[in-house]
């Protein structure tokens, strides 16, 4: 095994995600747009917004992962790049993980970094806790991207696969979303929740690449 295919898969995905629009600004615009709709939809009451704010950001992160992942493997399956990855001599699971990681870096991590600003818009108190939340959002969104990647790999040859990815991946997002929201609730049990969040992310990182690899071999047939 050599690392070269992994690096080039990573670079290619990063380049695609960066070039396919305004770089990281496009996912940020998506997040901003989704978040701005919420006060319009549920009203501008400060207490309500403060209560739902962290949850809205989790939902927006989940949606963002689904929207950006639709083409991650589909384009490769269409133009034959996928066949080259399968012959590259590196484990397919590692290539899939590298591509997913690149997409997370361009469409997941920026959103997590941006989250304190949105939290303030949702009437949260400015405190160091917002910076802790950045880490939690980053950790949780990584799990979202890996499970979403499984959906994307399974529907790589399906037209309009985006809707299918949502249906496949959403039940898999449940534990991460629950642990993440719990960690930010400040209520009972929230002290151990970050560890559970990390565990669910590790589980996703451990299992999803193999499922993606099996699905990609199928897509290449």
């Amino acid at each position: 095994m050599t690392a070269a295919p992994l690096l080039s898969a990573f670079r290619q995905s990063l380049g695609e995600a960066w070039a396919g629009g305004a770089g990281a600004l496009l996912p940020l615009g998506f997040l901003g747009g989704a978040a701005v709709l919420v006060p319009l939809g549920i009203g501008s009451d400060a207490d309500t917004l403060r209560a739902v704010g962290p949850g809205i950001l989790w939902v927006a992160l989940a949606l963002s992962s689904l929207v950006t992942l639709e083409r991650i493997f589909q384009a490769d399956a269409e133009d034959g790049t996928l066949d080259l990855w399968l012959q590259a001599g590196a484990p397919v699971s590692a290539i899939a993980a590298a591509k997913t990681l690149a997409h997370w870096l361009s469409a997941g991590l920026p959103l997590a970094l941006f989250s304190p600003l949105l939290a303030l818009m949702f009437q949260a108190e400015a405190s160091p806790a917002l910076l802790v939340n950045v880490g939690l959002y980053a950790l949780g969104s990584l799990a979202f991207f890996f499970w979403g990647g499984v959906g994307a790999a399974l529907s790589a040859t399906v037209r309009r696969g985006g809707l299918l990815i949502s249906l496949i991946a959403l039940p898999l997002y449940v534990p991460t979303a629950i642990f993440g929201a719990l960690a930010m609730s400040g209520g009972p049990g929230s002290t151990g929740a970050p560890l559970l969040l990390a565990a669910s992310t590790l589980f996703a990182c451990a299992v999803a690449p193999y499922a993606m690899a099996a699905a990609l071999r199928l897509a290449a047939d």
Partner: peptide
């Protein structure tokens, strides 16, 4: 593939 991934996740979903 999906059914097996789902089955692996069911205990975690239940726990969470």
């Amino acid at each position: 593939i999906l059914a097996m991934v789902g089955a692996l996740n069911v205990p975690l979903i239940k726990f969470s």
